[in-house]
C-alpha cells in the first residue's frame, strides 16, 4: 500500500483530503506545518508528498527545498497544492523542487491521476 504524506495546516482540508485518499486505498500520514513535514518525510519515508504551499513555521517552498537537500528524502516525489491559480505559482513550485502542481479546491480524480503518474515514474 502506497504511503502519502499530506502536509496541510488547515484542519478541514487535512481531514477531508486524508479521508478521501484513505478511501482510495492510500495510507495517509499527516503533518501540520512545513517543519513537521520535513521531519515526517525523513521518519516516515512516504512514497509521495502532497505539500500545501502556504504553511506556517516553514512554508511549502522552503520545506520542499529542505526535503530536496536531504539525501534520505531527495527522491520522494512532491506535488504542490496551492489555492492561488496565478501564473507563476506553478513555476515557483517546480523551481523549489516539486515534481508536479495542482490547485485547490482539489479535483480528486485529477489529483489522483497526478499521484499515480508520480508513483509510476518512481517504480
Amino acid at each position: 500500500m502506497a504511503r502519502i504524506l499530506l502536509v496541510e495546516d488547515n484542519e478541514m482540508n487535512r481531514d477531508m483530503l486524508s479521508r478521501r485518499l484513505a478511501r482510495k486505498g492510500y495510507e495517509v500520514v499527516l503533518a501540520v506545518d512545513g517543519d513537521e513535514g520535513v521531519a515526517m518525510a525523513k521518519s516516515q519515508q512516504p512514497d509521495l508528498i502532497l505539500m500545501d504551499m502556504s504553511l506556517p513555521v516553514l512554508d511549502g517552498w522552503e520545506a520542499t527545498r529542505a526535503i530536496r537537500a536531504e539525501p534520505a528524502t531527495r527522491a520522494i516525489p512532491i506535488i504542490a497544492l496551492t489555492a492561488h491559480a496565478m501564473d507563476g505559482e506553478r513555476a515557483k513550485a517546480l523551481e523549489a523542487g516539486c515534481n508536479d502542481f495542482d490547485t485547490k479546491p482539489v479535483d480528486l480524480p485529477r489529483l489522483l491521476e497526478k499521484i499515480e503518474q508520480q508513483m509510476a515514474k518512481r517504480d
Binding site: 488547515n10 478541514m12 477531508m16 478521501r20 478511501r23 489555492a83 492561488h84 485547490k104 479546491p105
Partner: peptide, 24 residues
C-alpha cells in the same frame, strides 16, 4: 484581488469536499 478570491475559495472548498464525501 487574488487574496480575496483565495479567502473566499477556502470555505467553498470545504463545503464542496465534505458534500462530495457524503455523496460517496
Amino acid at each position: 484581488d487574488a487574496h480575496i478570491r483565495h479567502d473566499l475559495r477556502t470555505p467553498l472548498n470545504h463545503m464542496i469536499g465534505y458534500t462530495e464525501m457524503l455523496l460517496d
